[in-house]
Amino acid sequence: MRIGELSRRTGVSTRLLRYYEEQGLLDAERLPNGYRSYGDGAVATVHQIRALLAAGLSTQVIKDVLPCARGEVPTLEPCPNLLATLRRELGAIDARMDALRTTRESLSGFLQAAAREAA
């Protein structure tokens, strides 16, 4: 199928599909006229990419995880380094959440102090 059809079938813009290809997430064959041609599995692959992006993974991480994905709503099968990659990503998210909690507590303290001063 050509890129326009893949876009219609997945709801993903052609621009994003080209980006996924540039990132090594999506494979396309080039026809003699230069058009991209995608295989039957491309629809499922795009759905997998979108689900993994929604889970907060970067395209760089998705490139490593994608070979482990099965089905349009992906389940991840054991692959080399999969657990280490997911644990690393989860640890990074936990660290960002801790930093946000600290920032929130600071801002809340400033707001409470300012409210007391204004009263």
Rank of each mutant, 00 (worst) to 15 (best):
P67V: 05
A113G: 10
T45F: 02
E29K: 13
F110V: 14
G4D: 11
G71F: 11
E22N: 15
L25W: 01
L53T: 08
L57W: 04
I62Q: 05
G109R: 15
G39Y: 04
L111N: 09
E72Y: 04
E22F: 06
N33C: 05
F110E: 09
A119G: 15
L100A: 14
D40V: 10
A55P: 02
L6G: 00
R116I: 05
Q48K: 12
R18M: 03
T14M: 14
H47E: 12
A99I: 03
L26K: 06
L66A: 10
M1N: 05
E105R: 15
G39V: 05
V73N: 13
L26Y: 06
L83R: 13
V12N: 06
R50D: 02
D94Y: 09
A95P: 02
G24S: 07
A51H: 12
A44W: 00
L83A: 11
A44R: 14
I62E: 02
L6T: 01
C79N: 07
A54L: 07
M1C: 04
E89V: 06
I62M: 09
I49D: 00
P74W: 00
E29M: 07
A115L: 15
D27R: 11
A118W: 14
K63N: 06
S13Y: 10
T75A: 13
A118C: 14
V65C: 02
E105I: 03
G4R: 11
G24E: 07
T103R: 14
L111F: 15
P32V: 05
L76R: 07
V46M: 02
R30S: 06
L16G: 01
T10V: 08
T102Y: 10
R2E: 01
Y19V: 05
V12C: 09
E21T: 03
L100H: 14
I93F: 13
C79Q: 08
A28L: 06
S13A: 09
L107S: 04
G41Y: 04
Q23W: 03
E21V: 01
Q23Y: 04
I3V: 11
P74F: 02
R15V: 09
A114Y: 10
A99F: 07
D27N: 05
A119N: 13
C79V: 03
G56C: 10
H47L: 13
T45A: 13
C79A: 13
G56H: 10
A115T: 15
R50V: 13
Q23M: 15
K63W: 01
G41V: 05
S13M: 03
R30D: 00
R104C: 07
G109T: 12
L86E: 05
T59E: 01
R96L: 05
E89G: 07
A55W: 04
D64H: 12
V46P: 00
L66M: 10
G34C: 09
E72M: 13
R9D: 04
R101I: 02
D27T: 10
E117Q: 14
Q23R: 15
L53W: 01
M97R: 14
R8P: 00
L107A: 10
Q48S: 09
Y20I: 00
L25Q: 01
L53D: 02
L6W: 00
R104L: 10
T10A: 11
